[in-house]
Each structure stands twice: as C-alpha cells, then as structure tokens.
Design a protein around this nucleic acid. Structure first.
Lengths: 93, 93
DNA sequence: GACTTTTGGTTTATTTTATAAACCATTTGG
DNA sequence: CCAAATGGTTTATAAAATAAACCAAAAGTC
C-alpha cells in the first residue's frame, strides 16, 4: 500500500488545500471561518504548507488592517491530486 | 466542514480497515505484511480499533502457534462508510 | 539436549503532530 | 483616553504515531 503524503494527511491542512483547489485565492480570515479552526492552529498549518511549497502566502495590507492571502501552487495542486489518487486505493473508490 | 473521524484518519488504522472491508477476516501476520507496518505499531492500532468497537480481535492458536484474527464489525463498517462520505467532500469527488 | 534463532506478539519510551493558550501590535468604538 | 476587537504569531501542552525493547514458546542447529 502506497504511503499517504503525511503533509496532506491532516484534517486542517487537507481542508485548507481542498478550499484552495477550488478558488483563486483565500485570505486568513476566510480560511479560519470555513475550517472552523483557531487562529493559532491555522497559522501553524499554513506555515507548514508554505514551507513545503504547496501554497503561496502573501502578507499585505487591506486598507489599514493586515491581510494574509493564500493560494495553491502548482506543486501543491500536484501533491493534492496524487494524494487523492492514493487515498482512492484505500477507500475502494 | 464536517469533522473527519480521528480514529479512522490515521494511515495505518485506515489501511487496516480498508483491508478488513474487503475480506471476511485477516490475521495479525497478514495485516502486518500488507500494511508494511512494525508489529508494535500494528498491535497498538489494532487495540484502538478494537476498543472503539470497530473490529473484533480473536486471540487463539493455530496448531502450536498463537494467531490473532481480526474482522470488521457492523459499527466499524458504518464508521468507515461515513468517513468515506465525509472525505469525499474534502476531495471534490 | 543445551543454545541460538524465529515467530507472534505486547509493553514502554521516544519522537512527531496537532491543538490550545498566551501574547502582541494596531485599530476601532464609546 | 480606555476597552474591546481584529489579525495574527509564538510558545506550551496534549495527543498521536512510531520505534525500541522485551517476552514466551516453538523450531531448527550442532
């Protein structure tokens, strides 16, 4: 049985990647709401995805407030797709 | 986004459940080979699945050697199926 | 027929992960 | 001003997964 990419096999990181697969970009606040995660946990997991090169994280300003925008990278998209294929062999899909 | 049953969202436990979904029963040695896990890790994870009532574990003897046989329970089957449905919403399947 | 190895595990320790709690700077509202 | 909210990060803690050490019985080995 093939290994499931451990970076993607985490509920929160998978949820983030899942969202980013379907959207051009998403900011921190949106991801936090959609995933119902705490800010701290989300921050940590975004860092991991970013370090792996799976997402791009841009920290900028929206008016006077900070705004962190995330988008999936090519490598991220490929890793996600491979993860899905591997998972299918586990789930009999 | 719905929570992914954490008991099933583990590579090894998921692999075990996946195997048991397709087979009447499987013994420790078979599961160990199929999943390429260590005996210690497998032992621990089988205990967890057993404690959760997802699998039945029978410790008996095959001739003179010990033999641990596992099979999925009704509750295990249902949990697995629900897990798959939830996961589909993450994977866009 | 002692002794080493293999088989089939379990138990305990260690490492890794995920999560939560505490914190910080800025901003907004009263 | 002062209190609370916003948008985060950093650090500590809890929970997992994994590995290492161990154990009893059986089976070869010389």
């Amino acid at each position: 049985m093939k290994e499931l990419n451990p970076l993607l096999h985490s509920q929160l990181r998978l949820a983030v990647m899942s969202i980013l697969m379907n959207v051009e970009e998403a900011d921190f606040v949106y991801l936090k709401e959609k995933t119902e995660s705490t800010a701290g946990n989300l921050s940590v997991q975004l860092d991991k995805l970013s370090s792996a090169g799976y997402i791009a994280v841009e920290k900028g300003m929206s008016g006077k407030r900070p705004r962190t925008v995330c988008s999936i990278t090519r490598a991220g998209r490929e890793a996600f797709e491979e993860y899905v294929e591997t998972l299918k062999t586990y789930l009999n899909l």
